[in-house]
């Protein structure tokens, strides 16, 4: 029983990071109808940036959370405005080539700048954990989950309780009508891309205290995010959150009860099963899509 609870706990905790990356991806897709194949690489860049800053200043990585978030939002906004935007009405092939190209570019840049080695941050609480009811809760993982929860609540507030957030949702539902309401689509694209990659970068920051940092780290998280987004229903934010937690749990349970190195097999098996039986996504029924 306690190994089961332990696996569940680990799964839910890492699910927070999956949710950040996946929600970013689904938000970009919902508003821009663009699949960002570089989503994982933005997480990687977020990790390296944080690691470099923390090593240079010799402080805790979390000190740079807000700074990295703001920087990546601006980065994303400008990248959309000057690059991605040119592909908006050019069809999916062009968009795929561009974001795939960006992902390769970022990976190579990271390799050149930081080298291929696995790095990790020096944090005092890396191995600390809380012991609650027979379950070990890793302290840095709990922190990371906490960050995900806070960021998700903030995002919910933005999307549902602010003028700009409501405008962004409206743009995702019906672009033409949104423009007729006076909502500038170009602004919405920039905001969506900025927020989308900011979420990935924040996920990256929260990984630094307990995860290895290396140029290819984004590939795994990016792939997981795609699985989660399809599970949740394309463009569905709540679906992505639920999907992320589910994938985290499936992965942890497979690692616990099947084999550690088969954990991804469990993830993709669950993915295929959902595709077979609920292709419209986990939450929304057909009528809602």
């Amino acid at each position: 029983m306690s190994t089961f609870l332990q696996a569940m706990t680990n799964g839910v905790l890492i699910g927070g990071v999956y949710a950040l990356v996946a929600v970013g991806l689904t938000l970009i897709f919902g508003v821009m109808n663009t699949v960002n194949f570089a989503q994982g690489e933005f997480l990687m860049l977020g990790m390296f940036t944080t690691l470099m800053l923390a090593e240079t200043a010799r402080v805790d990585p979390y000190v740079f959370l807000v700074l990295v978030a703001v920087a990546f939002f601006v980065f994303g906004f400008l990248l959309e405005k000057y690059l991605i935007h040119r592909t908006i009405d050019r069809g999916h092939e062009t968009q795929i080539l561009l974001t795939l190209g960006l992902s390769v570019l970022f990976k190579s840049l990271a390799l050149v700048i930081w080298g291929p080695n696995f790095r990790s941050a020096v944090v005092s609480y890396r191995l600390k954990s809380l012991y609650v009811g027979g379950v070990l809760i890793s302290y840095p993982r709990l922190l990371s989950f906490g960050v995900a929860v806070v960021v998700m609540l903030a995002l919910w507030f933005f999307l549902n309780r602010t003028e700009l957030g409501r405008a962004m949702r409206a743009s995702a539902v019906n672009r033409k009508s949104a423009a007729l309401m006076g909502i500038n689509p170009d602004l919405m694209y920039g905001l969506a891309f900025g927020i989308g990659i900011m979420l990935a970068a924040v996920g990256g920051v929260s990984l630094v205290p307990f995860y290895y940092v290396f140029p290819d780290v984004g590939a795994f998280f990016g792939t997981i995010a795609f699985v989660v987004v399809v599970l949740g229903g394309l463009g569905d934010i709540l679906g992505a959150v639920v999907g992320a937690l589910l994938i985290g749990v499936v992965e942890a349970l497979t690692a616990q009860y099947v084999a550690l190195d088969l954990s991804h097999l469990g993830v993709f098996l669950a993915f295929i099963l959902v595709l077979l039986f609920r292709p419209q996504g986990l939450i929304r029924g057909k009528g809602w899509a």
Binding site: V173, K176, A179, L180, G182, N184
Partner: peptide, 28 residues
Amino acid sequence: RGVHRMAELGITLVPQGRGLFGSMSVLE
């Protein structure tokens, strides 16, 4: 001028097929 400038000019279109934001509430 671009579609999104029409509202501030004082021009509004009720499009064919209504173009509502179907998954959002009436008030929204």
